[in-house]
C-alpha cells in the first residue's frame, strides 16, 4: 500500500507518522532498530518518531514472531498474537507465566504467574502440552536457533467432549549484521480438534525471509500454505501424528526451495538476461556496425 497518499504542499504530522510507520513495518528481520535509527535521522522530530514507533513496533514484533528471553531466565516467550493478553503482555504456557514486553527495546521487563482464567482447562491442555513436547523435539533437531510455542486459540475452557483449536508457532532467526545477512523462518500451524468427527484438521502457513546486503540489497521472501488431517486419538498419539505431518511438510517444502534455487541460475535467470548470446560468443563490437547495416538491408529487402 502506498503510504504517501495524495501529494500536498506541506505534510501534516499525521502523514509523516504514517510514512514513518511504513518504513518501520517493512524492516527486514532483525533490522528494525537500524531502520529506527536512520528514520530518526531523517525525521529529526522525536514526537513524530515516537508516535510512529509506538504503533509500529508491536505490530512488527508480532508479525516477526519475535522470541524474547524472559527476565527471570526461565526460557523464551514468543511475541505473537496467539499469546497476547494485552498489548505488552504475552503468555508463556510452558512455565505458565505472563511476560511483560517492552516492544521498542524488544526485551522482557518482568514476569508473573498466569492466573487460572488465563490458562486452558485440563482437557485441551493435555493435548497442548503433548504437542508442545513433540514440537520442541522437532525444533531442536531441525532449527539450530528455533523457538516454538503451542497455544489454545479456541475452546480454552472446554471439557472432554468439546471442540477446540491449537496454534503451533515456530520461529527461527539467524541474525548476523556483521556478515551483512539476516533471516527468519516462521511457520504457523492451526489444528482444529473436532470431537464429533474425531478428526484433527491442520492448516499450515510458512514464511521465509532473507536479506543479504554487503554492497547491495538482495531479499528473498517466500510464502507457502498447505493443509492435511489426521484422526483424533489420545494426546500422545495425536501429538506424534501432528508433528510428523508438520515435519514432513516442512522438509518437502525445503526440498522444493532447493529445486527452485537449482533451476535459478540456468533457467529462471535466463528469462531476464542470458549468460552469453545464443551464439555462445561475446558480442562482436568490432563488426557491429556492419551487422547493423546488414540488418537494415535485410529489413529494407523484406519490406519490398
Amino acid at each position: 500500500m502506498d503510504p504517501t497518499g495524495p501529494v500536498g504542499e506541506e505534510l501534516s504530522d499525521e502523514q509523516k507518522i504514517r510514512i514513518a510507520k511504513w518504513f518501520l513495518l517493512n524492516s527486514p528481520p532483525g533490522e528494525i532498530q537500524y531502520v529506527a535509527k536512520d528514520l530518526q535521522g531523517v525525521l529529526s522530530n522525536d514526537v513524530i518518531y515516537q508516535a510512529a514507533a509506538r504503533e509500529a513496533f508491536p505490530i512488527h514484533n508480532k508479525e516477526q514472531l519475535l522470541s524474547v528471553e524472559m527476565s527471570d531466565g526461565s526460557g523464551h516467550v514468543l511475541v505473537c498474537q496467539y499469546g497476547e493478553i494485552s498489548i505488552n503482555h504475552f503468555i508463556e504456557l510452558r512455565t505458565a507465566q505472563v511476560a511483560t514486553i517492552n516492544h521498542i527495546k524488544q526485551v522482557c521487563t518482568g514476569v508473573r504467574l498466569a492466573t487460572d482464567s488465563e490458562l486452558p482447562s485440563t482437557y485441551p491442555e493435555g493435548y497442548r502440552s503433548a504437542i508442545d513436547s513433540e514440537v520442541m523435539r522437532y525444533v531442536e533437531e531441525a532449527f539450530p536457533a528455533g523457538h516454538c510455542a503451542v497455544y489454545v486459540t479456541k475452546g480454552k475452557d472446554v471439557d472432554d467432549s468439546g471442540c477446540f483449536e491449537l496454534t503451533i508457532v515456530i520461529s527461527s532467526a539467524k541474525l548476523s549484521p556483521k556478515n551483512f545477512c539476516n533471516g527468519r523462518w516462521r511457520s504457523i500451524w492451526v489444528a482444529q480438534f473436532d470431537n464429533g468427527l474425531r478428526t484433527v484438521e491442520l492448516k499450515g502457513h510458512i514464511k521465509i525471509s532473507a536479506h543479504y546486503f554487503e554492497d547491495g540489497n538482495v531479499q528473498l521472501d517466500t510464502v507457502y500454505d498447505d493443509k492435511e488431517s489426521t484422526i483424533l486419538q489420545g494426546p500422545s498419539e495425536t501429538a506424534s501424528a501432528v508433528v510428523t505431518i508438520i515435519q514432513n511438510f516442512e522438509s518437502a517444502y525445503l526440498a522444493c526451495l532447493e529445486d527452485c534455487y537449482s533451476k535459478l541460475s540456468d533457467n529462471t535467470f535466463k528469462e531476464l538476461r542470458r549468460k552469453l548470446p545464443i551464439t555462445r560468443t561475446l558480442f562482436p563490437w568490432h563488426t557491429a556496425r556492419q551487422l547493423s547495416m546488414n540488418r537494415e538491408l535485410t529489413r529494407e529487402m523484406s519490406n519490398k
Binding site: 532473507a210 522438509s251 525445503l254
Partner: peptide, 13 residues
C-alpha cells in the same frame, strides 16, 4: 547467500 540462509534457519533433515 539467501539460499545459505534458508538452509541455516532450517536444516534439511
Amino acid at each position: 547467500k539467501t539460499r545459505e540462509m534458508v538452509f541455516t534457519l532450517r536444516e534439511p533433515l
